[in-house]
Design a protein around this nucleic acid. Sequence first.
DNA 1: GTCTATAGAATGATAGAC
DNA 2: GTCTATCATTCTATAGAC
Lengths: 192, 192
Amino acid sequence: MTGTKLIEAALLQFALHGYEGASLSSIAGEVGIKKESIYSHFKSKEHLFRSAFDYSISKEIAFIEVFFSGTGNSTLIEKLKQFITEYMDRYENTINTRFLIRNAYFPPAHLKEEMILKSYDLTEKLESMLLHEIESVIHRLRNNLQPEDVVMTYLTILDGLFVEMLYGGKSERLLKRIDSSWKVFVEGLSYK
Amino acid sequence: MTGTKLIEAALLQFALHGYEGASLSSIAGEVGIKKESIYSHFKSKEHLFRSAFDYSISKEIAFIEVFFSGTGNSTLIEKLKQFITEYMDRYENTINTRFLIRNAYFPPAHLKEEMILKSYDLTEKLESMLLHEIESVIHRLRNNLQPEDVVMTYLTILDGLFVEMLYGGKSERLLKRIDSSWKVFVEGLSYK
DNA sequence: GTCTATAGAATGATAGAC
DNA sequence: GTCTATCATTCTATAGAC
């Protein structure tokens, strides 16, 4: 139990201050134990970080799976739009997502390759779910546009919105960006 | 002279390891002096970081201004596309841009608000240059699309491409993302 | 599993000689 | 303006009592 409490405290500290900026004592303090006691659960800071990262990735994948399995009777476009707004809310409210965005973008230098590989699990999951959704619905696309193009564009916009989220949270600017990109995106792939 | 050499060494170290991860000794070592000598030029790590940030922002603004003043006889669309590819190259080759992306996204917690304000100088510059370019050329847009929508979408895509750049640099994936988003973007705002 | 005690290294920073 | 010497603090990490 203390192990997972430590992981969740680690998620917060690493999300707020990054790997080097977060100290074991702050993580321990949040759980209510001394920093030395961490070593009964994780053999080093690096291992704690690794565990937090794995934990975070799998929670994020679960979120994606739940979202896309909850079919509803929305159209594809509605679903894609809803995913964006839900994911922005999730960033705002969920430490897990904040941790992941920061530490997947900027892992500690000596763990970079490893973390990028793990991040690809998430990206590929999302890509394949989107591709499946899109292929099952869209049969004819405009101007040689392939389903893969739609996925790539969608993910690029999603990433861009996360960046705006970093700056101002769920601000007026973000809402404007969501609104505008969405208009152009939908217009861009509207099929006949 | 040593002052600016220190700033440029700082740009590299802060770009690679972030604020907390970069040490004054590594910065000094790169310039060939001892860490204590830094204090003859900057009164603290925070001040060095601040100076590096200001330096970085103004260099980046200069890049944008040069790009858009070099008119050429390209169309707007060509120009916008070229700006993306040039900016990706710049990210790959210029420490300045790497520093800025990392530390504007994730500044040290106690300097966050200050750095965000400074970042807005850059964003607003870019927004206003784009808006000016677009308004001067595009007179009729599809479906109630406003010039501002074009700017917002374009910037969102640009940010999204930077994120992909963080992961794999100028990879096959990035080129695919550029290609796909560009197709959808251009199709989305094509005016009649 | 948590604590105290301790170690060793590195950090940002200051003072003063040259 | 750079150096050496020094400081206080913090950091990750280990050993051993309870």
